[in-house]
Design a protein around this nucleic acid. Structure first.
Lengths: 139, 139
DNA sequence: ATTAATACTCGGAATGATTCTCACTTTAGA
DNA sequence: TCTAAAGTGAGAATCATTCCGAGTATTAAT
């Protein structure tokens, strides 16, 4: 899975640059739309295949945003996310990651822990001001 | 979304009992297969619809397990999960939830924070003993 | 108990993100 | 330059989830 032979491709290089240039945690289709301008013949399959390659190369992470679609993040430093329950936006949180969680999760178990993920959810600033009556639990 | 009129249905009541009786964090199709024994005419759509109703009633939570399918958990107390990267199993973690995360995430922002979720990943005990050479990053 | 209103069920079709297939093209090393 | 292997585009296939329409069950009021 990791000991693969990769060749360069302009599509993949630009995909990574694009992902690195934004804080939006884009979806596959957002990336496709942008990249399509530069590569008019671009195929959606190519975007998905390269997202998978970059993930295997450890150059991006996949954030599961509910069951509908994934979002992608090229910032490989451990950091936490905030997800808006109303508009679906994903924002980085300026919190120090708690690596003790991983130690405690491994403690007294045969598990191998490789990482952890924290997602805080609620309503982002824009939605919080519109939405005077917050909705009930949806996750 | 919450001020809905619900009527009782045996299918939904048994669905919730079934989910409450297991620690497996089942998928929709696992629940469907089990419930189908009891309700031979059961429809998959009914399972999904009722999972949605129970979620809106605050009686279960949806765990997004990667992009492929959801898992469901009727334990509404805040608690953390461990997810095996190899077999996909989901286990509860016996860690005290850190509610300070939510306060820190809300601090100095217009956000409304309603909850948070922690997922630790790696290899479960069974997989850790088989898998001598752990695989590279996949999330 | 009957009835009316409406939520619920089933089955199957529709949706939508993601993955796969395959013929052709590009890359990289000899 | 030549060749093998990885990459590409187009579209079909997959698969979890949602939607729809006609008939059924539940509830509250008569």
């Amino acid at each position: 899975m990791a000991e693969q032979n990769y060749k360069r491709s302009r599509q993949r290089e630009r995909l990574l640059e694009l992902l690195r240039s934004t804080k939006e945690h884009p979806t596959a289709s957002w990336l496709y739309d942008r990249l399509k301008i530069e590569f008019p013949a671009l195929s959606l399959g190519t975007v998905y295949r390269n997202l998978g390659v970059l993930r295997d190369q450890g150059l991006l992470r996949v954030l599961a945003a509910g069951s509908t679609f994934d979002r992608f993040d090229a910032d490989m430093r451990t950091h936490y996310h905030f997800m808006c329950e109303r508009c679906g936006a994903v924002e980085d949180l300026a919190l120090d990651p708690d690596l003790g969680i991983e130690q405690r999760a491994a403690q007294c178990s045969g598990r191998i822990v490789t990482g952890h993920r924290v997602e805080v959810f609620g309503f982002c600033e824009a939605c919080a001001s519109k939405e005077s009556r917050p909705i009930g639990p949806s996750q």
